[in-house]
């Protein structure tokens, strides 16, 4: 009984992270909490399959991921367009925070929402939740090497998306390089066009306008 209680406590501690992942992934609040609720129900009913001493966080994220796969993807109607809740969230956040760092956070979140699900998954698990590649591989049911290469491409794609978005925000034309480049496929090389850090790029564009 005490074991059971401890496991429930372990689960409870992870709820904020599950909610964050769900919110950033599902893009609207109600859907996100519904999916977390469904995941918790499955976790509790399948608690006997949890091996004590193993990683509760990874176990719960695996369940959440499966719920997304099975329920959310089937249910959602509009797989590509960012949800209006997200945009409203961003507007509210943007009004609240006038600091550049807050703006950047908002920009990155908005840019993230434009990426494919595969990319968002690895960014959220490894980049936001800080899971190891091995843990993310377990959650997603893919090899560690796939996590590694997908994460690399996702990070490039996110940088491209942030660059494009920051130009949109400032009503500046996106640099042709950001539009033309196929995100994630370009390897670093001495000869390849450099994409400068986002803030630096925006500044340099502004001064040339």
């Amino acid at each position: 009984m005490n074991d059971q209680r401890n496991l429930h406590l372990l689960i409870e501690q992870e709820i904020p992270r599950l909610r964050r992942y769900a919110r950033l992934f599902a893009r609207d609040r109600d859907t996100a909490d519904d999916l977390v609720q469904e995941s918790l129900l499955r976790a509790l009913s399948g608690l006997h399959t949890f091996v004590p001493g193993t990683n509760m966080r990874a176990w719960l994220f695996t369940i959440l991921h499966n719920v997304f796969r099975n329920d959310y993807r089937r249910a959602k109607r509009n797989p590509v367009q960012p949800n209006s809740d997200l945009i409203a969230d961003h507007a509210a956040t943007a009004v609240r925070g006038n600091q550049e760092s807050h703006m950047e956070l908002t920009r990155v979140q908005a840019a993230l929402s434009t990426l494919s699900e595969d990319f968002r998954e690895v960014i959220l698990l490894c980049g936001v939740e800080g899971l190891l590649y091995e843990e993310a591989a377990e959650v997603l049911g893919i090899p560690v090497g796939t996590v590694r290469s997908r994460l690399s491409r996702a990070r490039s794609a996110l940088r491209e998306a942030v660059t494009t978005r920051s130009c949109l925000d400032r009503r500046l034309p996106a640099p042709p390089a950001a539009l033309k480049r196929v995100a994630g496929q370009k390897m670093l090389s001495k000869g390849s066009p450099r994409v400068p850090a986002v803030s630096g790029l925006a500044t340099s564009l502004r001064t040339t306008q």
Binding site: H8, I11, E12, I15, P16, R17, R19, R20, R23, L24, D33, V36, Q37, L40, L41, L44, T93, E104, L105, V108, Q109, L112, I123, G127, V128, G130, R155, L158, R159, V162
Partner: peptide, 25 residues
């Protein structure tokens, strides 16, 4: 970028957990 990602959604972590989720566990 990694540093920004670490802070993404930290406001969600600070939200109170909805009752219906707490009641479940």
């Amino acid at each position: 970028q990694a540093m920004v990602l670490r802070r993404l959604g930290s406001d969600i972590l600070d939200e109170p957990i909805p009752d219906q989720l707490l009641d479940l566990v």
